[in-house]
């Protein structure tokens, strides 16, 4: 299924988060190694004001490149792509990004489920999905699909998460084995080799 040679990066980490996840990300980002050989996509629930504040905030905390995802962007290793407000972010088979302004999923656009399941269809076992703090059930279905396609699923420890509902829900529904705090999550991402 996974046509390895066709994609611009071989492995992808997709991180989803809702309320309380910003804090976790601000802890994780400074710890990520500068020569990360993976693509990183972040899907956050946020208000619809399209501005660069979030990109700038993240960029100030990491030596990796941070950009808001544009349609047809080709994934590059060592770059962090943020889903733009009010669009779903999907992955194409060649590892490029697509945007979709269709209906909200789980009351959310971008929806974590949409990106997780789309990424799972392209990256299969080379995908790692990480779900952070949140008050919504978005992400739980997407994690099930990542798992089904052979990918790895990791959840922020609900005891540490500012809002436990979303990670707790994902753990309950998916029998997640890997549950970690934000600092350990960064270490885990660093340890994924090419």
């Amino acid at each position: 299924m996974e046509k390895k040679a066709l994609r611009s990066v071989q492995k992808l980490v997709v991180i989803g988060g809702s309320s309380g996840s910003l804090e976790a990300l601000l802890t994780m980002l400074p710890k990520l190694r500068a020569d990360l050989p993976l693509g990183v996509v972040i899907v956050l629930h946020r208000n619809n004001q399209s501005d660069n504040a979030l990109v700038e905030l993240f960029a100030s905390r990491t030596s990796l490149i941070v950009k808001e995802a544009d349609e047809k962007d080709i994934l590059k290793a060592g770059t962090i792509y943020i889903a733009p407000p009010d669009y779903h972010l999907l992955l194409e088979q060649d590892g490029s990004l697509s945007l979709d302004a269709s209906a909200k999923v789980n009351f959310s656009r971008p929806s974590i489920d949409v990106t997780f399941s789309s990424a799972a269809a392209v990256f299969g076992k080379y995908l790692t999905g990480i779900l952070l703090s949140g008050a919504n059930s978005d992400g739980a279905n997407g994690m099930a699909i990542i798992k089904k396609k052979g990918g790895r699923i990791i959840v922020q420890d609900p005891n540490e998460a500012l809002v436990a509902y979303m990670p707790a829900r994902a753990i309950k529904e998916n029998d997640v084995e890997e549950v970690f705090g934000a600092l350990e999550l960064a270490e885990l991402i660093n340890s994924i080799s090419n």
């Binding site: 349609e71 779903h88 999907l90 992955l91 194409e92 088979q93 697509s98 979709d100 269709s102 949409v114 789309s118 269809a121 392209v122």
Partner: peptide, 9 residues
């Protein structure tokens, strides 16, 4: 049409 979105729908 871009396939990811079309496939989903």
């Amino acid at each position: 049409y871009s396939r990811a979105s079309l496939t989903r729908r």
